[in-house]
Nucleic acid binder design. Structure first.
Length: 487
RNA sequence: GGCGCGGUAGCCAAGUGGUAAGGCAGAGGUCUGCAAAACCUCCAUCAUCGGUUCGACUCCGAUCCGCGCCUCCA
């Protein structure tokens, strides 16, 4: 089995074969840092994270670049409205972005280049395009790319540009372009830009949007690299234009595989502020959802399928994760690893922190776990079919719980399955629970209840259980003793 | 108008030319002092209408509905 992905360029599923064997170079379109990112944005970043993690799971070395677009119309406008220099304005949102990625357990990329730190590279690229005659300067001093000079234009979006040249849709204010579909490589300075400007050989101004990704992608990954991703809305014009300007400049194919994730909708509708269904990650964390829960919700749908975000399904995630945690706890108990979540009353305190061997997966794996590993791998190999991978995981949980009920899983087997879970989690990033804070008062009540139980004082025992429930804790009586779970 | 994606159980969501994964919720049962957790059992004929086929949810056509792109939105 090999890892196969859907390539937008060919509209077919292809095996991942990087130019350099075993090393994938990928460019993932990042945020425009003029605001807090919303959950739709993070759906894309989580898709990219899954891609990255599965590549690594498959043994590839990954070099990932994610750009930070810190100069564009909206960014300039907002920074001026707030009376802040561009860098000072974007700093806040860049920091928020990285904090949000951490909340969602996204693995860091190798490079996070900011557009404003790479203007010289962009100028050089534009100069090359001017020298080659595929770009031209308009009356106002802007530089445009002439799509008529690039025969392959439209190959990614599968657009036939001939129909667009009629001029019917040319906007009034775009008279300076030779063709309506030509796009800006460089925008001449105007008053609205304030002090946001750089000097180029052809005049003062700022780079167009598309050029940053070409310049930075090539700088960090080479003139030709393996993978480029983004949301479907980036296919045209952004990625189409990247291909045109990059390939026109270098004469080499820019990117081998293009992957695009579908959008997220909320309750079946496009997310918009006017509908009141627009959420940033921060909004949802504020409503009490954890990064882990949101990660699961945003990750569990296949990336090429539009994701219907609902609070109902987000609540379902909480239950599903609870079952995952329960399974890990049981495995640890069987493996003889003291679980910090299990409060043993009586002789054993929670002091011992054993480093019991999480053995190398593959050894001692029960048949059902081996089967799960194979199904899990095959699912993700098939264009990141994460839903099927999760199904394999849950099938394993059912089989594993059954084995533990029947006492057919020994300590070594349990340790091996724990090791397998860790391998799964290297890809999914959802299995490690959030730190559960301990509550001394609750533990005292738990001990009292245990004493009441030993005295067979059931009314008192039940009363204490109710009291704990009031405080947000539910009790589970296990063979290892009673356990507290946060509701 | 052009191009593209999708409509699968109460909700979320995979999938296949031969009679539908998984999760959540729900019902019954086992276990438990009672619970909780776990396990077992049950719970859909795949938008509609035609067609192709021995056989379609899966292929083709039409219709309805939802969503996206068609110049800077992941």
């Amino acid at each position: 089995m090999a890892f196969r992905i859907h390539n937008t360029l060919t509209r077919s599923v292809e095996e991942v074969q990087p130019a350099e064997a075993g090393h994938v170079r990928m460019y993932t379109c990042g945020p425009t840092v003029y605001n807090f990112a919303h959950i739709g944005n993070f759906r894309a970043y989580l898709f990219e994270d899954l891609l990255r993690r599965h590549l690594k799971f498959r043994g590839f070395r990954v070099t990932q670049v994610m750009n930070l677009t810190d100069v564009d119309d909206k960014t300039i406008r907002s920074s001026r409205e707030q009376g802040l220099p561009l860098k000072a304005f974007t700093k806040k949102y860049i920091e928020a972005f990285f904090a949000d990625l951490k909340t969602l357990r996204v693995e860091p990329a190798e490079h996070y280049p900011a557009a404003t730190d790479h203007v010289p590279e962009m100028i050089a690229l534009i100069q090359t395009l001017l020298d080659k005659g595929v770009a031209y300067k308009s009356d106002d001093g802007s530089i445009y790319f002439s799509i008529a000079k690039f025969p392959g234009y439209g190959k990614l979006a599968h657009l036939d540009m001939s129909g667009l040249r009629s001029g019917a849709r040319v906007a009034q204010d775009e008279y300076e372009k030779e063709s309506a579909a030509d796009f800006a490589l460089w925008k001449a300075w105007d008053e609205q830009d304030g002090d946001v400007a750089w000097d180029a050989p052809w005049g003062r101004g700022r780079p167009g949007w598309h050029i940053e990704c070409s310049a930075m992608g090539m700088k960090y990954l080479g003139p030709s690299f393996d993978l480029h991703t983004g949301g479907v809305d980036n296919i045209f014009p952004h990625h189409e234009d990247e291909i045109a300007q990059s390939e026109a400049a270098t004469g080499h194919p820019f990117v081998k595989y293009w992957m695009h994730c579908a959008h997220l909708v909320v309750d079946g509708k496009k997310m918009s502020k006017s509908l009141g269904n627009f959420f940033t990650l921060r909004d949802l964390v504020g409503k009490g959802y954890s990064g882990r829960e949101l990660r699961y919700e945003l990750l569990a749908t296949h990336y090429r399928q539009s994701l219907n975000f609902t609070f109902e399904s987000l609540d379902a995630v909480r239950s599903a994760l609870g079952r995952l945690d329960e399974f890990s706890d049981r495995l640890r108990a069987v493996a003889g690893i003291v679980d910090p979540g299990i409060q043993k009353t009586g002789t054993t305190g929670p002091g011992e922190t054993p480093q019991a061997g999480i053995s190398d997966p593959g050894y001692n794996l029960p048949a059902w776990a081996q089967q799960a590993l194979e199904a899990f791998t095959a699912a993700l190999d098939d264009d990141l079919n994460v839903s099927a991978a999760l199904a394999a995981l849950f099938d394993m949980i059912t089989a594993g719980n059954r084995a533990m009920n029947e006492k057919t899983l020994d300590a070594a087997g349990a340790a091996a399955v724990l090791g397998l879970l860790q391998r799964f989690d290297a890809v999914l990033g959802i299995l490690e629970p959030e730190q559960q804070q301990t509550d001394a008062a609750a533990e005292a009540l738990l001990a009292q209840r245990q004493a009441a139980r030993q005295a067979k004082n059931w009314p008192e025992s039940d009363r204490l259980r109710d009291e704990l429930k009031q405080r947000g804790w539910v009790i589970q009586d296990t063979p290892q003793g009673p356990k507290l779970k946060k509701i």
